[in-house]
C-alpha cells in the first residue's frame, strides 16, 4: 500500500478566485461556518476574535469620489507550500499540530495536538488562523445541526481552513470502495466553492493539467507555482510563501493590492504574478 502511494503523482489542491465575479456576498463565509461547525458568540463585530476560516475583505482603490472603487477578496487559508513544504506556520509549530501533507498539499490542523502557543498565528502573514479564546457555546438545541465530520474545537486551540479535508477523506473512502484510487475533479470540492452563488471560486488539483484550476492559474512548478496567467496573482507573492490560493482580476489596482509596494516602486516592472 505504502509502495503504491509512493509512485502516485502528488496532488496539489488549490483554488483560483475570480475577483471580477466575486460579489462580496459572504456566502463562502457562511458555507464554511456551517460545514465546519464554526462557533459564534453574541458579539462578532470585533473581527480580531471573530473566527472565520474564510473571511471576505473589502479592498478600496484609495481614490476619491466618484473615482472610488471597491473589490472584495475572500481569504481562506493559503495552504502555503513555502520551500519544500516549509509553510510559515508548519515550521514554527512545536507540537506538530499543523503539518504539510505532501500528498495533497493541504496544511492540516490537529486540534488535539495544539496546546495554544499561537506561534503559528504570529507566523502566518495572512491572518488565516484563529484562536479559541473561549469554549464554544451553542444555544440550546443548536448542537443538533453540528456535523459529525468535523470535531468542534475547544478553548485554547488554534483553528483554520482545512480545504474541507474531511470531504477529501469521504471522497477517497468512496473511491476506494469503488476500487478507484483517483478522484474526479467534482468529487472533492470545498464547501465555499460549492456554495458561491457567483461561481467565482474554482477548486481542484493544481498539478493536474485537466483541472480547471491548473488551466486558469497556469502554475509554474519550477518557481513555487507562480501563476503563468498575467491576470492571476497571489497574496504577498514576494514573501516566497508560495500559497495555493490564486486570485484573478482584470483590474490593475486590485492586482497591485495583492502585495506591498513602495510608493516609488514601479509596479509594472516589479509585479510578480
Amino acid at each position: 500500500m505504502k509502495e503504491e502511494g509512493k509512485h502516485k503523482k502528488a496532488k496539489k489542491y488549490g483554488m483560483v478566485i475570480n475577483l471580477d465575479e466575486c460579489t462580496g456576498c459572504g456566502a463562502c463565509m457562511v458555507a464554511c461556518m456551517a460545514e465546519n461547525n464554526v462557533p459564534f458568540k453574541e458579539d462578532e463585530s470585533n473581527k480580531l476574535d471573530s473566527i472565520a476560516w474564510m473571511r471576505v475583505y473589502k479592498l478600496t482603490n484609495g481614490k476619491s469620489y466618484p473615482e472610488a472603487d471597491i473589490c472584495y477578496l475572500p481569504r481562506p487559508c493559503m495552504h502555503c507550500e513555502g520551500e519544500h513544504g516549509h509553510s510559515p506556520c508548519v515550521s514554527v509549530c512545536p507540537a506538530t499540530a499543523t503539518d504539510y501533507n505532501h500528498e495533497t498539499g493541504i496544511v492540516s490542523q490537529i486540534y488535539t495536538r495544539c496546546f495554544g502557543c499561537r506561534y503559528c498565528m504570529a507566523a502566518c502573514p495572512y491572518h488565516a488562523r484563529y484562536f479559541n479564546w473561549w469554549d464554544p457555546v451553542w444555544p440550546e438545541g443548536s448542537t443538533k445541526y453540528l456535523s459529525p465530520n468535523v470535531s468542534p474545537r475547544m478553548r485554547g486551540v488554534v483553528e483554520k481552513c482545512s480545504f474541507c479535508f474531511h470531504r477529501y477523506q469521504l471522497a477517497m473512502d468512496k473511491a476506494f470502495l469503488e476500487g478507484r484510487t483517483v478522484l474526479e475533479e467534482d468529487e472533492y470540492q470545498t464547501s465555499c466553492t460549492q456554495a458561491c452563488p457567483a461561481g467565482a471560486i474554482t477548486f481542484g488539483d493544481l498539478n493536474n493539467p485537466e483541472h480547471k484550476v491548473h488551466q486558469l492559474a497556469k502554475p509554474d512548478n519550477k518557481h513555487g507555482g507562480r501563476p503563468g496567467n498575467p491576470n492571476v496573482f497571489r497574496l504577498l507573492e514576494r514573501l516566497g510563501t508560495n500559497p495555493k490560493v490564486y486570485y484573478m482580476s482584470s483590474r490593475e489596482w486590485v492586482r497591485q493590492a495583492g502585495d506591498n509596494y513602495l510608493d516609488n516602486e514601479d509596479f509594472a516592472k516589479n509585479y510578480r504574478h
Binding site: G26, A27, V30, L146, P148
Partner: peptide
C-alpha cells in the same frame, strides 16, 4: 439535518446558495 446546500441542476440557483439559505 446538518447542512443546507444549493440544489444542483435547479433552474434558479444550480448549486449556489446565498448566506441566508446556508444558515
Amino acid at each position: 439535518v446538518v447542512k443546507i446546500e444549493g440544489m444542483k441542476g435547479h433552474p434558479i440557483n444550480d448549486g449556489g446558495l446565498c448566506l441566508m439559505g446556508l444558515s
